[in-house]
Design a protein around this nucleic acid. Sequence first.
DNA 1: TGCGCCAAATTAATGGATGAATTAATTTAC
DNA 2: GTAAATTAATTCATCCATTAATTTGGCGCA
Lengths: 220, 220
Amino acid sequence: MPGTRLPARRTRTRGAGRPSGDEGDLRARLLDVAAARFSRTGIEATSLRAIADEAQVTPAMLHYYFGDKARFTEALIEERLLPALAPLREHLAAAGDEPRALMEAFARAVAEIVRRNPWLPPLWVREVLCEGGTLRELMFSRIVPSLPQLLAQRFAAAQARGRLNPRLDPRLLVVSLVGLTLFPAAGAPIWRRAFGAEELGPDVLLNHTLALLDHGVGAG
Amino acid sequence: MPGTRLPARRTRTRGAGRPSGDEGDLRARLLDVAAARFSRTGIEATSLRAIADEAQVTPAMLHYYFGDKARFTEALIEERLLPALAPLREHLAAAGDEPRALMEAFARAVAEIVRRNPWLPPLWVREVLCEGGTLRELMFSRIVPSLPQLLAQRFAAAQARGRLNPRLDPRLLVVSLVGLTLFPAAGAPIWRRAFGAEELGPDVLLNHTLALLDHGVGAG
DNA sequence: TGCGCCAAATTAATGGATGAATTAATTTAC
DNA sequence: GTAAATTAATTCATCCATTAATTTGGCGCA
């Protein structure tokens, strides 16, 4: 019946052949699909089947390219999660020593990361932040050992110079900073729905966060 | 072989009998075990088997008391999650109209909730905040419709009276407040490990959050 | 230029493990 | 003796992993 709309691929009955090249590397596509899917459903609760279906291939392709699920998630970390987080280090390295500049660099970096990788916040929150998360141990050995401490140390130095509210703990300030940036991003759908507001986009959030950090809630 | 240490229960070979009464209601125990377990592993990724094992009973007991997994999680919401969140409404109702008092009431309520229900923050973050979370829709119909808007409205009223930093958005302030309280609690293990600090308990966090909200980060 | 082969890519089919849900049997308190 | 509570066992579905089969693009070679 010509003219009926068939699913884009999947016309051959058996076997396939060399790279079809019709939409680039399948390996990369699988990683992209997995990032989005894992973000929505969680890693353990997501079947490879679901990923394969969404990528319009057979589950066997995941085995072909990655081996098993563990190595698949490892590849996801190495080739998607860690690169996505790279801007954070860069922005922080470029920022000066003033707490305000540091925080703004952090918030802007997170905003940029979220804009480019919408799947990241929920995945991070679910799999790294929460105990028992699949990515937790792997992330510990790659991110955590350096970034938070470094940032806390810079805050502490600024505090020693009298440039930071002495009632604050530099380490908790880092935690608060993450909470003020990643948390709203991870839960964006719920806030939008709760408040029925679409205008609360990343830019508004960024300005709001900076305003809060600048002067607190007082009417100054 | 007398003297060998056997697992507390599980000595009969088949069948059991009336309520053993040795440690209270099994139904309640199952809910408690599930709250802790779901919090660690996530709802979809946790098998009923694991819960039954931890409660030292057969998986069939879950069917006996609750029917299926869906109704089991429903019961968990009704009998554990919602009651645990009750102090929030009470604290907020008792607080006055000043933003500072509202925020302090919120932060104190969350601290109390977390202290009494350590399993709550990760469960909330994973299953409610994240898209695709199992508890999401159920929570929407019970919590969200009222609490966030009400709080935001009170902040807006205070802002109209000039008692709130005009650069802030009342709704985003609610989001920030949740991020500053629940997020650090949900990720406590990771922060402890990242900073090697055990002294960053709930009280310290509470004071820190209030200090941050009061004056921002400036050295004022 | 054309022909056949080879290897990469992909699929269908299968095996083994695990989980949810249910049922029949059994124990024990009252 | 009876009914509630609990267990063992079973059924059906799903998932991860693997393998054998199959297609097809490209390359050497004439």
